[in-house]
Structure formats: C-alpha cells, structure tokens
Amino acid sequence: MHELSGRERAYAYLRDQVLSSPAATGTFLNEGELASQIGVSRTPVREALLLLVSEGLIEMVRGRGAYVPPMSGRQIGELMDLRGVLERHAADLCLTAGTVPVERMSDTLDQQEALSEGAAEDHARTFIALDGAFHQHLIDAAGSELLSHTYAGLRARQLRAGLSALFGAPDRKHQVCTEHRAIVDALRSGDAAASAEAIDAHLTVTTRILLRG
C-alpha cells in the first residue's frame, strides 16, 4: 500500500478536515498549529497550502498567511450547476449501459438514514461523507475515468457546501435522505427523465439553502 508523503497527509487533512468545516470560513490558518496537528513539519504544510491555492480553495495574503475565503453565491451556483451536468450525464450513461449501482447507492443511503436522527451536529461529517459517496457511486458506475476524476476533484467544495447546508435548514438530514431515495427510485425504474428531475430537485434545494444562508 502506498504510504502517504508528508505533503499528501497535510493536503488530505486540510481538504477533508479543515476546509470542509464552515467554521474555517473567514479565518487564517496557522502553519505551525497545522503541522503539530498533522504530525509533520511546516514545509509539507506550506506545500499543501500552495496546492490548495492553485485549486482556488484558499488565498495567500501578504503578511497574514493562508486565508479561507467564503464561497460566493456565484461559486455555489457554479458548483451545483457542474454537479448537475456531471450527475445527469452519469445517470444517462448508467441507464443506457445497465450499470446503475442501485444496491451500492441504497446501502449508502441506509447508512445515512441511520444517522438522520438527532441534532444536525451529531455525526454531521460522517453523514456528509456518505452523501459524497452516494453521488460518487453513480459517477463511478458510468465507467469514465475522466468523469470520476473530475467529480472527485470537487470533494473539498462539496464537503464544505454539504456541511453548510446541513446546518442551514431544520431537519435537513431527513430531507436529504428523502431526496436521495427519490433519485434511487427513479434510477431503479429506468426512467432517464425522472432520474434527471430527481437529481435536479435535490441540487436545487441544496442551492436554495446555501444561498439563503
């Protein structure tokens, strides 16, 4: 198994643990504190930060360091539009090829439903990680390496947006599960139009919550 380098460990931690948290928005990141938390020197942390700068996820401010900017309304809209294009395309490919991953998506949805009780902050990160896996199953089943890679590249933004949306509406966990169930049912039926409609409905609700917040 490939052992992650210090830079890879720092990048993964920043992407999945730090930048995905709504609390990080509008803050400056401390390289020394991050290095201590991750268990690496400051050099790989700085390298990881530069990678994230190149991806547009953070900004380097002279004299202040790494800044986590809020997602603008335009960025949120563009993210959701791109997700819609990729997910609808994947659904069409899967339905045509007969490779719809209904069982895998249903299993992931069952795990989400098990976490849907209680306050939004309970198991929030796990719930959103499962949310990402739910959609990635559909993307990967389309059989396009480029499609899967492109979608996976949205991970940090999707984690961040997903957590923000989860806290942005009451009972959002249950709503997400209901919307996901509609997607699975439409895909199971083999109806491409219904599948696209279910995907769009889910993304529209998420977008509305994020823009309202």
Rank of each mutant, 00 (worst) to 15 (best):
A66T: 12
S54A: 13
L4T: 14
A198C: 05
A120Q: 03
Y11P: 02
R155Y: 13
S189G: 01
M60N: 06
V184K: 13
P22Q: 08
C177V: 08
R181N: 06
L138P: 04
V68E: 13
A10W: 12
Q112T: 04
T178C: 01
V100T: 11
G73S: 10
S164E: 15
L163G: 09
H174C: 02
L166G: 06
I38D: 00
G98K: 14
G153C: 04
D171C: 01
A12Y: 10
L79F: 13
A91S: 09
D81V: 04
E179K: 14
L115T: 01
L49C: 12
R83P: 02
E78N: 03
R74N: 03
S106P: 08
G213L: 12
T108S: 15
Q158W: 03
G168E: 14
V100G: 03
D92P: 12
H123A: 15
L4A: 15
E179C: 04
V53C: 08
V102Q: 11
D131R: 02
R208A: 08
I38Y: 01
M1N: 14
E87P: 03
L95Y: 11
V100M: 10
I76C: 03
M60P: 02
G56H: 00
Q37P: 05
S189Q: 00
F134V: 06
G77Y: 01
R74Y: 01
L203V: 06
A124V: 08
I76L: 13
G168W: 15
P70H: 14
L211E: 09
L154M: 06
R42H: 05
D185Y: 01
R104P: 00
E3R: 15
Q75P: 07
L51G: 12
E33P: 02
A120Y: 10
T204E: 11
I183Y: 02
A35P: 08
L86N: 00
D200K: 14
R83S: 06
H2W: 12
Q158H: 07
L211V: 13
D81G: 10
H174E: 07
I58R: 05
F167S: 05
Y11C: 09
G132F: 13
